[in-house]
Amino acid sequence: MEKVIQVNDVKAWYGSLQTLKGISLEISKNRVTAIIGPSGCGKSTFIRCLNRMHEVVPGAKVEGKILINKTDIYSTQVDPVEIRRRIGMVFQKPNPFPTMTIYNNVASGLKLNGVNNKKVLGEAVEKSLRRAALWDEVKDRLNHSGMSLSGGQQQRLCIARALAVEPDILLMDEPASALDPISTLRIEELVQELKQQYTIVIVTHNMQQAARISDYTAFFLNGEIIEYDITENIFTKPKDKRTEDYITGRFG
């Protein structure tokens, strides 16, 4: 199994508060890796380190090594903007650009990258919306505002927007936690579809969701990785007592 992301002893801080205390793990290509753990365990910080978004917070600091496709993403020769293009991110709350149409929401990333050809843009928008399983619902109103969509549709629009720039990796930070159950299931189905083409790292509070959609699961606690294994093992026979306590709801 090809390892797309190799993380070695990554530490992160917000000011003097250390949120990651030496994380090492490898993430497999075309697989879904879930990061679970209680609030404040560092799981969101971790995925923000993977596309150099942690450092944009004032006072934040990262140490350690992260290789993506063998490239050290924290090397001085690497442009963080290029990193973020190759590694898409979807957030907890759908955040379409409020003043843009559905079409422009998806096309924005490509336009920023200098693509102006209408035909190319139109094809990319359709392809991305199809991949995000939203095309059929919006194809007749691409010039409507992105805000005219339901929450679940908005989240799929954000996924389409992330996919439009052809990333290799998709990071998802609680992508379904603000959605109703039906929209949640659509996102989960979508994740399964997308892993054919992308490597997906998903942070989730919802353990059942992690159990349903991921191939690998990492359990984080207090900035450390406690257990990392294939998902089935984590949920049926965890090795560490702390993992057991967390997933059976006996924590604390």
Partner: peptide, 9 residues
């Protein structure tokens, strides 16, 4: 209750 791990077993 969605039992997990040892509870599930």
């Amino acid at each position: 209750q969605q039992p997990m791990a040892k509870d599930l077993r």
